[in-house]
Design a protein around this nucleic acid. Structure first.
Length: 255
DNA sequence: GAATATGTTTAAAT
DNA sequence: CATTTAAACATATT
């Protein structure tokens, strides 16, 4: 669950709902991926006010008191509002003064919380400018799909939005990054922005105040259920870097 | 029961 | 050395 657009919406919802509230208690049933001892996390966070929640790449950053708690949901992590029904697979839960709260769950136990994460200079997919993107592709021999998903080069694009962006830009996921002409890189840059921004708007509208987000109705091409694009093109699929990529043969291949 | 799933890390191979 | 690939992670769903 949860790629960049979902996380962006989650950050806004969390800020709206919990911003300004005091975090009374943090429970940490699973601490194996935590970068500090649970005790230290509690000392740093409990009794302090949550000022805001931001998204950075595929992580959320909770600004609490003087500290920042980074949270990566990984492959299967979810955010769940706390009610009388106790969710399964809790990694950690946040209880605010007044009773409200939410939990991070992950049946795979891979969701990762990091106290005061080091600053990351890798450009974010929503913020990267065209010259930076062009430079990033220059001379690279990897296929474009892999590069887009490489978090050390650009942060925030996952398997499904990678497919959506490339389809939108009309570029084959198998294109060699360095062989894509400038005009098409320009198109790619614009598609990155518009696909993500459109998704954020749609998810925000559909979700309202709910943290759940498995809305994939608007996906044009990525998904096992999609056999044809709206234009009637046949959707092909093949593995790139161990994950299934969906594409059409109308997307231009540069090699 | 087998295959698959929105991500990352590690080690091994190229 | 730089880059790429497979396996592992733990469970649910189809």
């Amino acid at each position: 669950m949860a790629e960049l657009p979902d996380l962006e919406v989650f950050a806004r919802i969390l800020t709206r709902k919990y911003g300004g509230k005091v975090l009374e208690k943090v429970d940490i049933p699973v601490d194996k991926k935590l970068n500090v001892p649970p005790k230290k996390l509690k000392e740093n966070l409990e009794g302090h006010k949550l000022s805001l929640v931001k998204r950075s790449g595929k992580t959320l950053q909770f600004h609490i008191g003087e500290s920042i708690l980074g949270l990566h949901l990984m492959l299967r992590g979810e955010l769940v509002e706390l009610t009388d029904k106790v969710p399964k697979f809790i990694i950690m839960s946040f209880h605010f003064k007044g009773g409200a709260g939410f939990a991070v769950t992950d049946m795979q136990k891979q969701a990762t919380a990091t106290l005061d994460p080091p600053q990351n200079d890798t450009p974010d997919a929503l913020e990267i400018d065209y010259p930076t993107l062009l430079k990033l592709l220059e001379g690279k021999r990897t296929v474009i799909k892999s590069l887009l998903m490489d978090q050390k080069k650009i942060r925030g694009i996952g398997n499904s939005y990678g497919d959506e962006i490339l389809y939108h830009a009309g570029i084959s996921p198998f294109s060699i990054s360095g062989k894509i002409p400038e005009d098409d890189v320009k198109r790619l840059h614009r598609s990155m922005h518009s696909v993500m921004e459109t998704a954020i708007k749609k998810i925000e509208k559909e979700n309202g105040d709910e943290l759940r987000g498995e809305l994939r109705d608007f996906m044009e091409i990525h998904g096992a259920g999609i056999k044809q694009t709206k234009k009637g093109e046949e959707v092909l699929h093949e593995k790139i870097g161990g994950r299934t990529s969906y594409y059409t043969k109308s997307q231009k291949l540069f090699d």
